[in-house]
């Protein structure tokens, strides 16, 4: 039973991974990263419940707090991106690549 929870969270992590790599919408990328962190949380809580300790729950509180801290910076990122480009497309941000010219 414990392994089922672990496998579920690995599957969820992979779904988040696919979303974060293949999509170009910045808000969806952010939500995929949140999904990956949630998958980690499920693993920790199920450990806690099956091994009858509270350490897993405490660690998953840490994960939640780290996710919240990242959320604040991501909100700032959405605002700056949208102000500059009027779009959420990450592929529009490629001016750094242009200077990569080899002469």
């Amino acid at each position: 039973m414990f392994k089922n929870y672990l496998i579920l969270s690995i599957l969820l992590f992979s779904l988040g991974l696919i979303g974060a790599v293949s999509r170009r919408n910045i808000i969806i990328i952010y939500m995929s990263i949140e999904l990956m962190l949630n998958a980690v949380s499920i693993m920790l809580v199920s450990y806690s419940s099956f091994y009858n300790t509270n350490t897993g729950v405490v660690l998953s509180i840490m994960v939640t707090a780290i996710a919240a801290a990242e959320a604040a910076l991501f909100m700032a990122l959405f605002v700056t991106l949208y102000r500059k480009k009027k779009s959420l497309d990450t592929s529009l941000f490629n001016s750094l690549k242009d200077t990569n010219a080899t002469k």
Partner: peptide, 18 residues
């Protein structure tokens, strides 16, 4: 360029943090 570097570093950094 600076905002773009911030965008790349933040997205990749939190992605690898996961």
């Amino acid at each position: 360029k600076s905002s773009e570097a911030f965008f790349k570093y933040l997205v990749l950094g939190s992605f690898m943090g996961a």
